[in-house]
Design a protein around this nucleic acid. Structure first.
Lengths: 109, 109
DNA sequence: TGACTATATGATTATGTGCTCATATAGTCG
DNA sequence: CGACTATATGAGCACATAATCATATAGTCA
């Protein structure tokens, strides 16, 4: 039944999810949010990007339900919607590790 | 220590991995390869795409070590390099499920 | 060798999107 | 209200890349 995971309807949705995560700045934002909720300004400082850019990526992440938004006072507080995204990053990192390992073996590192 | 997973050096690598998986046809190919090795022709038939297109995506997947290639006779047999990619898809599907669930709750489905 | 099948690749086009700039919206405080 | 801070958004540019077509490469078999 994992076979149903990638049926045609899901295919586009899954691909989209992956594409959302395929932008370094967005990963950086999520990584920052891993420590807790953050305001846009805080994320701008943490990432070194511009305010409009961070804001737009947050809008994208919000639209795809990867983050939550809560407005308090003058600020917007963003937080991770589903911590499972970090599992994804863990797997990918492990994957990359194994790739590099294989590379080392291949070239007799 | 999961914090180190997304250090600046890794950030680009991780993002790239995600981007590779962010193309429906590539997911379709990987999904097909989940059942075992396949030739390019078999993948062309299975996906309904064109030969050059499938071939190029396979080249991309190969370059990023997501698949392996073995040439036997006249054909090239591709297979999944690291089955962990399917864990990724599982997580993403679960993620999407929860999103939809939340949506249903929000709209009183 | 020539005919055939299988796969890869170069050139081109089309499209999506990340980034920047300027500006708009919204909330707080005096 | 006006001044300020925080956030969002529209327009435009720049770039990456997925898809297509034509063609090249490579292997098999007669």
């Amino acid at each position: 039944m994992p076979k149903t995971s990638l049926n045609p309807q899901n295919l586009e949705s899954v691909a989209t999810r992956f594409r959302i995560l395929g932008v370094p700045l967005r990963l950086q934002i999520l990584n920052e949010l891993a420590s807790g909720e953050r305001t846009v300004t805080a994320l701008v400082e943490a990432t070194g990007s511009t305010q409009p850019n961070v804001s737009k990526h947050l809008t994208t992440l919000l639209a795809h339900r990867l983050v939550k938004r809560e407005k308090r006072g003058n600020s917007a507080y963003y937080s991770v919607a589903d911590p499972a995204v970090f599992d994804l990053c863990e797997i990918v990192c492990g994957n990359i590790e194994r790739s590099l390992e294989e590379e080392r073996r291949a070239f007799g590192g």
